[in-house]
Design a protein around this nucleic acid. Structure first.
Length: 677
DNA sequence: TACGGAATTC
DNA sequence: GAATTCCGTA
């Protein structure tokens, strides 16, 4: 049967926009999946299930058949289809729900990123991009109504009206609807329609800002359209042919509840050209439990109702989302890594149920109960501008029941394969290190300790000269992913991390590496196959790297205040530095600097790490050498001089001395560099 | 069942 | 680039 949740899931337009999806060219599998998911008629074949964004393919063969039909690939079968799905793992669009057959989970966050290239990550620090595009990823996220009328309804996400609005031009009718089983036409042409609407993004941003400041009145819609965005239809949802949403909405009726509890996206009524609405997959139970978080959340009125607009989100939304997420993390005993670490956002103290929570799975649709909670919560929500912008996450971490254990960066495959203990640090190690280090902002203390512990624990990094360092984007995302948390463990944690991760992952590969190193990760052992593919940056990585390198912070996390504007990167840097300034500076010490450009914090850490390792080794060798020398020669000798490691020349004490000196030097150097930055 | 490499296709 | 196809492995 269908529950409200089942009924129609709306997806943001962006999901169909050409860029993100091959929209114009050919439908992508994930689009197709979404398409099926939103259609009631296919619920016997594939449906949202349990967790947020999670769906189960009830009839693999049928899904494959449908897919094959759509792609005109009669030979399609589940095996092939699943291969395609697996490719999404790396892209982080999707992941497998372990232990559940044919069950996968969308990582909408990722999708958002993918689809929001425009998100300005560029204005680092300072300016917040004007908009922040936010990627509404959380379950509680709502896409703003596209039309003014919708807007007014701040309260209900989807008032019928909105629905109506949407329906008209909806996208759904166009491509998607036709789709699933369609003949072999690929819905290429369709996009034009979608694209028209656009423009909204820019507006959205503006609006958002306005809203933030103004507190949301319903006003503020402005319409500046960002050029870049023009083609993006972003959050228009495609309304389903039937208007599933509508009824859902009604169910929810006067509540501010999500009309579609099950969906990852709430429906936002956007009438716009694109008619957007989002359908969402089921919320995860965890989330639902979160008081107030998503469910109650109502799109801020100010959000733009622009035509075509897209969704806008405001800090509150973000906050709620994060809160929900956090709660979820706690509820599920997820890895701390799963926490979002964004400045400016205060995450409520999670209430950790002593006992288990309702299993995520369960069922699909059971939204009905959340309303009350939401409502109540909602009322308590702070005014838009009231967002606190603090780095609570960090604090949370402290309070968190989780124990962090930072581990040394894993060797890269290459290294492993080549046994290379040679001179280069593998990229993976870099990433690992970087992550833990970069974590600083998030887990400030943790990161700091991480360094220490790491350095002490791993003596094996090679001592060779310059490590090959892969410069990675500074994103805490990575760090989140890569920090090892021993206490949690289950894949769910991983999944959740990813699920909520908004990160692009430029670390797909890295991620895998991680898994390899995680004992508890189910697949960890199997993937140890060699392959040199990751020696170089993965394509995705490159891509993502760029994204992260972009100057501006993700709008998403922008807070109303200027400071909030930091992007992940900015945040990371800012926060991290305080943690261990000296270390940071030292990070690059001794290592050759390509040039005096600013060195990413992460890199610095990495270097620092390397250096530490280096030194330790050197000292070790020295000590050993000396001991040996003494043993052999008695005690004379200028021991050490020739022992292999050309570096260590001085006796232990001296070594320390030297180290200190080097560190100082390095520090000075770095300081200079930093100034330049 | 699921994963992922490799080659190939569109 | 996004699958599709094949296939070995777990």
């Amino acid at each position: 049967m269908k529950t409200p949740g089942d009924a129609g899931f709306a997806f943001p337009d962006w999901a169909y926009k050409p860029e993100s999806s091959p929209g114009s060219r050919q439908i992508q599998l994930w689009h197709f999946i979404l398409e099926l998911l939103r259609k009631e008629e296919y619920h016997d074949v594939i449906a949202w299930q349990g967790d947020y964004g999670e769906f189960v393919i009830k009839d693999p063969d049928e899904v494959a058949r449908l897919w094959g039909a759509r792609k005109c690939k009669p030979q399609m079968n589940y095996d092939k289809l699943s291969r395609a799905l697996r490719y999404y793992y790396n892209k982080r669009i999707l992941h497998k729900t372990k232990g559940k057959r044919f069950t996968y989970k969308f990582n909408f966050n990722k999708l958002v990123l993918v689809n929001y290239p425009f998100i300005d990550m560029g204005s680092a620090g300072a300016g917040v991009p004007q908009s922040a595009p936010p990627v509404p990823t959380g379950p509680h996220f709502r896409f703003p109504p596209s039309t003014p009328s919708d807007m007014q309804v701040s309260e209900v996400l989807r008032s019928p009206s909105s629905e109506e609005l949407r329906s008209p031009g909806m996208f759904s009718g166009r491509r998607i609807a036709r789709g699933s089983v369609s003949d072999c036409s690929d819905g290429t042409s369709v996009n034009s329609e979608i694209e028209d609407g656009n423009g909204g993004v820019a507006e959205e941003r503006v609006t958002e800002r306005v809203a933030e400041r103004g507190g949301g009145g319903g006003g503020g819609f402005r319409g500046a359209v960002h050029p870049r965005l023009s083609h993006e239809a972003m959050f228009r949802m495609y309304g389903g042919p039937g208007g599933h949403r509508g009824h859902r909405v009604s169910e929810v009726g006067g509540h501010r509840v999500h009309p579609e509890p099950l969906s990852p996206f709430t429906v936002s009524p956007l009438p716009g050209p694109g008619g957007p609405g989002l359908l969402a997959p089921p919320l995860s139970p965890a989330l639902s439990m979160t008081p107030g978080s998503h469910l109650a959340y109502t799109p801020s009125p100010t959000l733009s109702p622009m035509p075509g607009s897209i969704f806008s989100f405001n800090p509150e939304d973000m906050q709620r989302y994060l809160q929900a997420h956090t709660q979820s993390v706690y509820n599920y005993h997820l890895s701390p890594r799963a926490f979002f670490h964004y400045p400016n956002i205060i995450v409520p103290q999670p209430q950790r149920p002593d006992k288990g929570m309702p299993g995520p799975q369960g069922c699909d649709r059971g939204p009905a109960e959340r309303p009350s909670v939401l409502n109540s919560h909602h009322s308590s929500l702070p005014p838009p501008h009231a967002h606190p912008i603090h780095h609570h996450l960090g604090e949370e971490q402290h309070h968190s029941p989780f124990k962090f254990k930072l581990q040394p960066p894993p060797l890269g495959r290459k290294q492993r394969d080549s046994q290379g203990r040679q001179s280069s640090l593998s990229s993976s190690s870099t990433s690992g290190l970087g992550s833990s280090l970069s974590f600083g902002s998030d887990l400030s203390s943790a990161s700091g300790s991480g360094l220490v512990s790491n350095s002490s624990s791993t003596g094996s990094l090679n001592s060779a000269g310059l490590p090959k360092i892969k410069v990675e984007p500074i994103s805490d995302i990575e760090s989140e992913e890569e920090v090892e948390v021993t206490d949690i463990s289950d894949e769910e944690a991983d999944e959740r991390d990813e699920e909520f991760g908004v990160f692009p992952s430029h670390y797909h590969k890295h991620r895998h590496h991680h898994h390899h190193h995680r004992n508890h990760y189910p697949h960890s052992q199997k993937h140890q196959q060699p392959n040199g593919t990751d020696a170089a940056l993965h394509p995705d990585e490159d891509l993502e790297e760029e994204v992260f390198k972009a100057p501006a912070p993700p709008p998403f996390f922008l807070s109303p205040t200027s400071s909030s504007g930091d992007s992940r990167r900015g945040t990371t840097v800012v926060k991290s530095e305080p943690v261990e300034p000296a270390d940071m500076q030292l990070a690059s010490g001794g290592l050759p600097q390509p040039n005096s450009q600013c060195i990413p914090l992460k890199l610095r850490f990495k270097r620092r790490w390397d250096q530490d390792q280096h030194m330790e080794e050197a000292e070790d060798k020295k000590v050993r050498g000396e001991e040996r020398g003494r043993e052999r020669n008695g005690m004379a000798e200028e021991s050490g001089s020739g022992s292999g490691s050309g570096e260590a020349e001085s006796p232990p004490p001296l070594a320390h001395h030297r180290v200190s000196a080097e560190l100082h030097r390095a520090t000075a150097q770095l300081s200079l560099e930093n100034k330049e930055c």
